[in-house]
Every structure is written in structure tokens, then in C-alpha cells.
Amino acid sequence: MDKIILPQGYKPSENEEYMNPMQLEYFKQKLLNWRNGLLAESRETLNHLKEETWNEPDLNDRASVETETTIELRTRDRYRKLIDKIESALERINTGNYGYCEETGEAIGIKRLEARPVATLCIEAQERHENYEKTHIDEDLLDS
């Protein structure tokens, strides 16, 4: 496949063929930049944790360090999960499935992908999933 060079300031539009090579390249670059940013932040977190003073003599200072560390590790775990989703989206670009709902096969839509480039479901399928989860969580709460 030829390398696609996007025009300066290119943004996908509803007026062009859905998931044409330019749109795919646009989303690929968007996903790669997002992943690289998350990886850089993760490296910063690791460096910060290595430099952290763990043997604070004051109990309050030690508690603060532990709380900050817990928050950083939780954030890093969220990043790891998000990076996995980004990797999956990049794989869908490579296989030609990107931009289409995993459930219905319908187009997810440019606006939704702009807002959530790792989206795998169209709005309707996403709403069905959320309503299903909400209903079952409510039922689980009633059962307990």
C-alpha cells in the first residue's frame, strides 16, 4: 500500500467516501499520536516512582506519598487498557474493519470516531449495551 500524505489541516468529512484511504490515514495518525503520548506519560510515571522517597520519617508524609503512588498506578493501569484499545483500533485499520460497528456492521460515523477513535460500536449499539448493563446492575442490586 502506498504511503498516504495528508494535506495540512486535513479533517475527515461526511461529504467524502466513508473510510477512504485519507480518512484511514488520518485516524491511524491520530491513534498513533495518542498512544505515543500515553506511553510518554507512563514513562514519566515510572521515572517518578523510581525517584520517590519511600522512607519518609513522618507518617503523614509517607501516607501522602503512598496515596499519590496509588493514584499514579491506577492512572497507569487505565493508560495500559486504553493503549490496548488503541492497538486494537490500529489492527482494525490494517484489516479494513475500522469505522464499522462490531455488532451491526454499520458505519460508526466520523463525528463519533473523532470524539472516541477507539469506538467499536455505533451509537445505537452502544446505547443498547449501556441500557442492558444498567438494567442488569439494577437487577443485581435488587437481588442483594
Rank of each mutant, 00 (worst) to 15 (best):
M1I: 05
D2A: 15
K3H: 10
K3P: 09
I4W: 03
I4S: 03
I5N: 14
L6D: 03
Q8K: 15
Y10A: 07
K11N: 15
P12I: 12
P12L: 10
S13H: 12
E14I: 15
E16I: 10
E16K: 11
E16M: 14
M19S: 07
M19T: 08
N20Q: 06
P21L: 04
P21V: 03
M22R: 09
M22D: 11
Q23L: 03
L24P: 03
L24I: 06
F27S: 06
F27V: 05
F27E: 02
K28Q: 04
N33D: 10
N33C: 03
N33W: 01
R35L: 04
R35V: 01
G37H: 08
L38T: 07
L39K: 13
S42K: 12
R43E: 07
E44Q: 10
T45C: 03
N47K: 09
N47D: 14
H48L: 10
E52I: 02
T53W: 08
W54G: 06
W54T: 04
W54F: 11
E56S: 07
P57I: 14
L59P: 13
N60S: 15
D61V: 05
A63I: 08
V65N: 04
T67D: 02
E68Q: 05
E68H: 10
E68I: 05
E72K: 13
L73W: 08
R76A: 11
R78P: 00
Y79L: 05
D84V: 10
K85P: 06
I86F: 06
E87T: 13
S88K: 15
L90F: 03
E91G: 05
N94V: 06
T95G: 10
G96K: 01
G96Y: 06
Y98M: 07
G99V: 02
G99L: 01
G99C: 02
G99E: 01
G105V: 10
G105N: 14
E106A: 11
A107V: 07
I108R: 02
I108W: 01
G109D: 03
I110S: 00
K111C: 00
E114Q: 10
A115T: 00
A115F: 03
A119G: 03
A119W: 00
A119L: 00
T120A: 05
T120D: 12
I123D: 04
I123N: 05
E124P: 10
A125M: 00
H129C: 13
H129N: 15
E130F: 07
E130N: 11
N131G: 12
N131Y: 10
E133K: 14
T135K: 14
T135R: 15
H136K: 05
D138M: 12
D138I: 09
E139T: 01
E139N: 01
L141W: 11
L142A: 09
D143S: 12
S144R: 13
S144G: 08
